[in-house]
Nucleic acid binder design. Structure first.
Lengths: 219, 219
DNA sequence: CCCAAGGTCAACCTTTTGATTGACCCTCCG
DNA sequence: CGGAGGGTCAATCAAAAGGTTGACCTTGGG
């Protein structure tokens, strides 16, 4: 049987080199190409496709400094004609990382600090069309199904974003044309759902779970 | 001339593999040993020293999940009899990271997403006793000298970091063993220097200016 | 059709923050 | 030696945020 052909997508040259070295040592895996961000990954896929050289698995990092990030790239790849499975290989295992990856159509979620043998198995599993999840990812998805009521509404996320810019309750109220009382009501709900009791903790929690972008970030 | 002997310190197997692969491809560089955290790095240094095998450069990550972190390890290495230069190679370039690394005695600060050629040059420069800084690190230190009045003190940055985790004034006070009154004093100074008038705005401003890392980011 | 859920608002009270002033102690440096 | 800057603390007042209760309106799905 031919090698499993992998496309590496990671913005860190160092990490790409590490994965390349690690994977090529395994029997049955070869690196088809590498890309530093989502746009480059799509370009590589189409380039390889016209050459008739398929890609069996895309190994994708989620956090990428510049260019299209991992979630957007995964979604874009899933819209291709014959999309290869996308296996997320990233550093963090926060709720929102996992959820947005799964929602974008990833067929697996692994952590970079997993033992090489586990990464090898995950690549083969993904290539075979199976779903492979890190323990925390699996647990999170189970939990989502058993008790779904804890997610923030769009309105709450909107206020959270304004909160993170440093606005006072009054300023937020003016911004979205509601009363300060309503802002407080929303905030109380938000604190409850996030399990915190003040605005800075809410920002920290929401940022960690990637519900919102870090304060002062473009977007 | 003999190879530059490098000690890799990073908690990530993938990253270590990447650096090993990348550096050994270069003429004149060889890997003396690897370590997954600060304690292991010190052990490796003493082990190599009794074998009479010197280390010319320590390549050190700052963020390491468990064990002694990069700053503490750097400080510990600088206290050795004949300390090798420590070149920081990390993911983040916030003021706080850069300053604490430099204060700990690092002789260089590079980012992991730097091109391989730059990393190679940095290793040789550090081995030759030179100081090598990423652009943002250099700019920060220059700025320190040209206008010192407007910059935050280390203490203020420390409180800012705790602030960003969502702690109350009282909780911050307990954390650093000072009174709540002193925390307030510091915060007033911080607000003045950042040009804001509340804690959430301070977090947003400090994050935007990269004085601190985004809330909830691994450190 | 009705109810659940989301969004809106008010009144009230407690706690936390923010602002000001003034003070004491260090250390570094001219 | 003497000041400047940094760190520490207290007291006080004003402002903002946090928590609770209850209410009204709209909309979508059982």
């Amino acid at each position: 049987m031919a090698d499993v052909r992998v496309l590496l997508v990671d913005d860190h040259p160092v990490v790409r080199a590490g994965l390349r070295a690690m994977l090529t040592e395994f029997e049955g895996i070869s690196i088809a190409a590498e890309a530093a961000d989502g746009k480059a990954a799509l370009k590589e896929l189409s380039r390889l496709s016209v050459l008739g050289e398929g890609v069996d698995v895309v190994l994708m990092d989620l956090q990428m400094g510049a260019g299209m990030d991992g979630v957007a790239a995964t979604a874009a790849i899933r819209k291709l004609a014959a999309p290869p499975p996308v296996l997320i290989l990233t550093t963090y295992d926060t709720d929102s990382d996992i959820l947005s990856a799964v929602e974008a159509g990833a067929s697996g979620y692994m952590l970079k600090d997993a033992p090489p043998e586990q990464i090898r198995q995950a690549v083969f599993a993904a290539a075979a069309g199976e779903t492979v999840l890190a323990p925390r990812a699996a647990a999170l998805l189970m939990n989502r199904i058993t008790n779904p009521g804890t997610s923030l509404t769009p309105r709450e996320v909107q206020l959270l974003e304004l909160l993170a810019t440093g606005l006072s309750n009054r300023a937020i109220a003016k911004q979205v044309f509601i009363s300060e009382a309503t802002v407080k009501t929303h905030l109380v709900h938000i604190y409850g759902k996030l399990g915190v009791d003040n605005r800075t903790a809410a920002i920290a929690a929401a940022t960690r779970r990637r519900i919102i972008r870090p304060p002062g970030q473009a977007g």
